[in-house]
Deep mutational scan, measured.
Amino acid sequence: EPLWIRPDAPSRCTWQLGRPASESPHHHTAPAKSPKILPDILKKIGDTPMVRINKIGKKFGLKCELLAKCEFFNAGGSVKDRISLRMIEDAERDGTLKPGDTIIEPTSGNTGIGLALAAAVRGYRCIIVMPEKMSSEKVDVLRALGAEIVRTPTNARFDSPESHVGVAWRLKNEIPNSHILDQYRNASNPLAHYDTTADEILQQCDGKLDMLVASVGTGGTITGIARKLKEKCPGCRIIGVDPEGSILAEPEELNQTEQTTYEVEGIGYDFIPTVLDRTVVDKWFKSNDEEAFTFARMLIAQEGLLCGGSAGSTVAVAVKAAQELQEGQRCVVILPDSVRNYMTKFLSDRWMLQKGFLKEEDLTEKKPWWWHLRVQELGLSAPLTVLPTITCGHTIEILREKGFDQAPVVDEAGVILGMVTLGNMLSSLLAGKVQPSDQVGKVIYKQFKQIRLTDTLGRLSHILEMDHFALVVHEQIQYHSTGKSSQRQMVFGVVTAIDLLNFVAAQERDQK
């Protein structure tokens, strides 16, 4: 057995438009009618409502009807409940999964919650491996369901041993009777949507819809739904939504950006999952974080739909894509998950301010006199920076000697690579993860907040409520011999709460 199987392995699926269902090699399930009293909570997966979006479509000038398939009504709160249950049931049916076995899954959280929910009911041990950027709410729900959680670096490539995929496979090879159901490759993922989600949409719309818009992560949702719609409703256009920084969209030119990270969760990847059939997507749109969270908040405030950030991405694209539809036509959007997962993220004004998705003037509360002053007023001194090749031991000596707790790590040209902190280095040394002679590049981390000289002290204040420091950066445009230009970030300084307090105190003292 291989040590790991690539999540982007070539698909062996034989589905073709027009091929009889009787030739399918898979076990198919028909939607079942729910009894009045459910035998367990797993029976509350599927049969989610279709809700008309009344205000947002009109606000953006849509002539067509805009409908939302509300997947956050599933038992675990997301569309991923469907595939989690289906993968477990299919693994039980073919004898792969037996009582007492362990389920391991690399996930952005929602599939993990679905699997942990099913594992709690069915009696399996469950280990979820997820990147650090995923919300604390997801972690809390997983723990409450009895799952064990392993976190991995957000910026690790999918084929790196440190990625959530790599760590999951390492655990599988170490733990007896453990299984990775593997949402990236498992046919049960798109089949769950082909058999149930798509049929529900067709039934709820009486077979009449002209466009379907869905955000894409593993691709199982859009693949399964689109294949069924292509068979039953061939005139329906399928629109895929991919965040900026991901590479799922086609044509490839759409993916060209210097951005590699994004805040919206559960969609987009740096590889093409095996289950994603991009041939059934008629057109791709890219979405960005700001519009995703703005539209998610709009869905909550104006439509009462308590959905997550990827739902915002989907609707932001839908109001663009559906401009081509006329009166009497219908566009369906998939709202994948609930706001429950993001209470401390985009639902929080403070978080939105820190990330730059909300401006101070958007909030009406009274601010102190210094709130709208610029960061450049602080008069920061030149920063202490270190090269990635310097040793951890030497870096600790320098920081202690100069009285700093942290320093930016830059390359020879001064471009920011990340940050090192005294606390992080000492804990890594004590844990045996690094040696004093190791290069400081081994303990770089990139989960820090950046701020510009033109940003306000109010925004800085919000950042420092949650973080010990902020890195002050400025952009530099560099022209190359080819005539092309590129933008790079340079370090201007490091600012802490002490710097802000000293500035405010000094100004008030001078005024007296």
Rank of each mutant, 00 (worst) to 15 (best):
I239S: 06
I239R: 04
G240A: 13
V241S: 13
P243S: 03
P243C: 02
E244A: 10
S246H: 01
S246Q: 02
I247N: 07
L248K: 03
A249I: 05
A249K: 02
E250I: 10
P251V: 07
E253P: 05
E253S: 10
E253K: 10
L254F: 02
L254K: 03
L254V: 06
Q256R: 15
T257D: 10
T257F: 09
E258T: 12
E258L: 11
Q259N: 09
Q259E: 13
Q259P: 14
Y262E: 02
Y262Q: 05
Y262D: 00
V264K: 00
E265K: 04
E265G: 01
E265Q: 05
G266H: 01
G266Q: 01
I267C: 03
I267R: 00
I267F: 02
I267Y: 07
G268K: 00
G268V: 00
Y269P: 02
D270H: 04
D270N: 03
F271G: 00
I272K: 07
T274V: 02
T274F: 00
T274A: 03
V275N: 05
V275P: 04
L276C: 06
D277Q: 04
R278C: 00
R278S: 07
R278D: 02
T279L: 15
V281M: 14
V281A: 05
D282Y: 11
K283Q: 14
K283N: 12
W284F: 02
W284P: 00
F285L: 12
K286A: 02
S287G: 11
N288F: 09
N288A: 13
D289K: 00
D289T: 01
D289A: 01
D289P: 02
E290W: 11
E290L: 12
A292N: 03
F293D: 01
T294W: 11
F295P: 11
A296W: 00
A296Y: 03
A296C: 05
R297C: 00
R297F: 00
M298K: 14
M298E: 11
L299E: 03
L299A: 04
I300P: 00
I300G: 01
A301E: 12
A301V: 14
Q302V: 08
E303V: 02
E303I: 02
G304S: 00
G304K: 01
L305P: 00
L306H: 01
C307S: 11
G309L: 00
G309C: 02
S310P: 00
S310K: 03
A311S: 12
A311N: 03
T314C: 06
V315E: 07
V315S: 07
V317Y: 05
A318R: 02
K320P: 08
A321F: 06
A321S: 06
A321G: 14
A322C: 08
Q323F: 15
Q323Y: 12
E324Q: 14
E327H: 09
E327M: 04
G328D: 15
Q329I: 02
Q329F: 08
R330N: 13
R330H: 14
R330V: 13
V332E: 01
V332Y: 00
V332N: 00
I334E: 00
L335N: 06
D337C: 01
D337G: 00
S338C: 07
V339W: 04
R340N: 06
N341M: 02
Y342N: 04
Y342Q: 01
Y342W: 03
Y342F: 06
T344P: 04
K345W: 00
F346N: 04
F346V: 03
F346G: 02
F346R: 04
S348T: 14
S348I: 05
D349W: 02
R350Q: 14
W351K: 01
W351C: 04
Q354K: 12
Q354T: 11
K355Q: 09
G356C: 04
G356R: 06
L358H: 07
L358N: 08
E360S: 15
E361W: 14
E361F: 12
D362E: 13
D362L: 11
T364S: 15
T364F: 13
E365V: 14
K366I: 13
K366W: 09
K366R: 07
K367G: 15
K367D: 07
P368D: 10
W369G: 09
W370A: 03
W370F: 14
W371D: 09
W371H: 09
H372R: 03
H372L: 15
H372G: 13
L373K: 06
Q376T: 11
E377F: 09
L378S: 06
G379M: 12
L380S: 12
S381E: 13
A382M: 11
A382S: 11
L384W: 07
T385A: 13
V386N: 02
V386H: 05
L387Q: 13
L387I: 15
P388S: 15
P388G: 14
P388C: 04
T389S: 09
I390K: 06
I390C: 11
T391K: 05
C392E: 10
G393D: 07
H394P: 14
I396K: 04
I396P: 09
I398D: 09
L399N: 05
L399A: 13
L399H: 02
R400H: 11
R400D: 10
E401N: 13
G403H: 10
D405G: 06
D405P: 11
Q406F: 02
A407D: 04
P408D: 05
P408E: 02
V409N: 01
D411E: 08
E412N: 08
A413C: 14
A413F: 14
G414T: 14
G414I: 13
V415Y: 15
V415G: 14
V415A: 15
V415Q: 13
I416F: 08
I416Y: 10
I416E: 03
L417I: 14
L417P: 13
G418H: 13
G418W: 06
T421M: 14
L422R: 13
L422Y: 04
L422C: 15
L422Q: 07
G423R: 10
L426E: 05
L426K: 07
L426G: 13
S427F: 13
S428A: 12
S428D: 12
L429P: 09
L429Y: 07
L430H: 11
A431C: 07
A431F: 02
G432E: 11
G432V: 14
Q435H: 15
Q435Y: 12
P436S: 12
S437W: 11
S437C: 14
S437L: 15
Q439A: 11
V440L: 14
G441D: 14
K442Y: 13
V443D: 10
I444E: 12
Y445H: 08
Q447N: 15
Q447C: 14
K449P: 05
I451C: 03
I451A: 08
I451H: 08
L453I: 14
L453G: 05
T454G: 08
T456V: 15
L457G: 05
G458D: 12
R459V: 07
L460S: 08
L460V: 15
L460G: 05
H462P: 07
I463Q: 14
I463M: 15
I463A: 04
L464V: 15
L464T: 07
E465G: 15
E465Q: 14
E465C: 12
F469T: 09
F469R: 05
F469C: 14
F469Q: 15
L471A: 07
V472Y: 03
V472M: 15
V473N: 14
V473Q: 13
H474R: 07
H474A: 06
E475D: 13
E475M: 09
E475Y: 09
E475G: 12
Q476A: 10
Q476P: 15
Q476H: 14
I477G: 04
I477W: 06
Q478H: 15
Q478R: 15
Q478P: 15
Y479T: 13
H480C: 13
H480M: 09
H480A: 15
S481Y: 09
T482G: 03
T482N: 15
S486H: 08
S486K: 14
S486D: 06
Q487N: 15
R488E: 13
V491S: 03
V495M: 15
T496V: 05
N502R: 13
N502L: 11
N502S: 14
V504S: 08
A505R: 04
A505F: 15
Q507D: 13
E508F: 15
